[in-house]
Structures are given as structure tokens and as C-alpha cells.
Design a protein around this nucleic acid. Structure first.
Length: 221
DNA sequence: ATATCGATTATCT
DNA sequence: GATAATCGATATG
């Protein structure tokens, strides 16, 4: 057990974060990314809830952003990006990993936000199982959801299951909600892991949050 | 502590 | 055939 967790517990049964309205996503990916910080990603399957706070995201600007998948145009792979806002774009990368985006902008215009890191709040045991980590081997909770491939695996997100799903509706089993969390300082840096347009500051993080990916040594104090 | 590399597949040249 | 919005393992200082 580590000491740096400040996890919230749901006092009475299931959590009830309000789903975000579709209009929230029908905007510029920069604004959506910035405002997604502090929201929660929720998975409900069977009777289990998984809940985790959004602490790191990246904006992808659409057809004219060379780093965006939408730069390839509207293809079978990218069609969700060109559809209505608030839907899940899930892609498979490096032969190993799924990553989750939410579509932005109006129907017909591409744009998205990539989820890069979450802070786990509820369903930690189940996330560890999904990640293939023995519960007792869970010395560092950052192994669960710190990184786009990791958080997708922790939430059981795959392309066949989730691509195109509605992230504004609990009926999809995967959605984004608001639980009243107050966001503190936000940091904006270049995006990670890309080669094109790598200089633009489109990565948004909660300043000082331990679950942000690619950190150095956990803050000493 | 940082650096390098293999895994494994959808998509594109 | 090459590359990719990554991760985890291994090597090395």
C-alpha cells in the first residue's frame, strides 16, 4: 500500500456523476480538452462501476492537424471523428494497445480529444484484474490508468466493444460525467509520442497530479 | 536514473 | 514494406 492516494469513496452504493451534454463536445477540441480535466470517465458493466478522474488529455484538431488521424480523411477507420460529437473513437496502435478519444465539433467536422491519463477512484480491484496485475502486486496505482493504453485496458475498452459508442449516455455503458470536482492549476505542454506538429501546446494536465503520464520521480514533497 | 528495443496489427505508401 | 496518438522488459550509468 502506498500513501499518496487520496481516493474518494462513494458513501452510498453507486456513484451518480451527471453525464455531460452533447453540446459540451460540439466545440473546438482545445476547449473541450481543457474543460474535460477534472471530469470522470465511468464504465458500468454487469453491476460493477469503474470511475476515474480525467487528469491528462490531448486535443487533435481535425483534417488540418497533421498529427491527427483525421488528416487521412474520412475513412472506415476515422469515420467516427467526422460524425456527431460526444462519441468514442477507439483505435488500435503498435499491435498492442487501444486508445480512447471523444469526438468533438459539429457533425461533419473532425476533431477529438485523446484521454491520456486518469486517476482511479472506484473499482480499483477490477481495474487491476483487467490490467493483469495481481492485487497485492499493486504497489503503484499509476500502473492502472497512467497512459492512454493503460487506461483503455483498465476500463476494458476495445474497438469492437466501444468504437462509435455514445459517451454522453449511461446506456452505452461508457460515459463521461461531472461530479462537482474543482479543478486547480492546469498545465499546457506539447503532445506526447507524435512526430508531426510536435511543437504545438495541445496537451492539458492537472498540475502536480501524480497520475499524469511520463512523470519523473513521484513528487518528493 | 535514462536509454533502447521487441511485441504485433491496422493502415498507408 | 514502413510506420504508428504505447507499454513493459532489459541493459547500462
Amino acid at each position: 500500500m502506498t500513501e499518496h492516494s487520496n481516493l474518494e469513496k462513494a458513501e452510498s452504493g453507486a456513484p451518480s456523476p451527471n453525464p455531460l451534454h452533447r453540446a459540451f463536445f460540439a466545440r473546438n477540441p482545445r476547449r473541450v480538452a481543457r474543460e474535460l480535466l477534472g471530469k470522470v470517465l465511468v464504465r458500468k458493466d454487469e453491476n460493477q462501476f469503474l470511475v476515474a478522474r480525467v487528469v491528462e488529455v490531448e486535443a487533435y484538431l481535425g483534417e488540418n492537424d497533421p498529427a491527427a488521424h483525421a488528416a487521412a480523411g474520412n475513412t472506415p477507420r476515422t469515420s467516427v471523428l467526422f460524425g456527431p460529437p460526444g462519441h468514442a473513437y477507439v483505435y488500435f496502435i503498435y499491435g498492442n494497445h487501444y486508445c480512447l478519444n471523444v469526438s468533438c465539433e459539429r457533425d461533419g467536422k473532425a476533431g477529438s480529444v485523446l484521454f491520456r491519463a486518469l486517476e482511479p477512484l472506484l473499482g480499483i480491484e477490477q481495474m487491476a484484474v483487467a490490467r493483469g496485475l495481481a492485487p497485492q502486486g499493486l504497489s503503484d496505482l499509476r500502473n492502472l490508468t497512467s497512459g492512454p493504453g493503460r487506461l483503455a485496458q483498465a476500463f476494458g475498452i476495445t474497438r469492437t466493444r466501444d468504437n462509435g459508442g455514445d459517451l454522453t449516455s449511461p446506456r452505452s455503458g461508457l460515459w463521461i460525467g461531472e461530479d462537482g470536482f474543482r479543478v486547480g492549476k492546469v498545465e499546457v505542454t506539447p503532445r506526447i509520442g507524435i512526430s508531426k506538429a510536435a511543437d504545438q501546446p495541445l496537451r492539458y494536465t492537472l498540475s502536480g497530479n501524480a497520475f499524469v503520464s511520463r512523470r519523473k520521480t513521484p513528487p518528493r514533497d
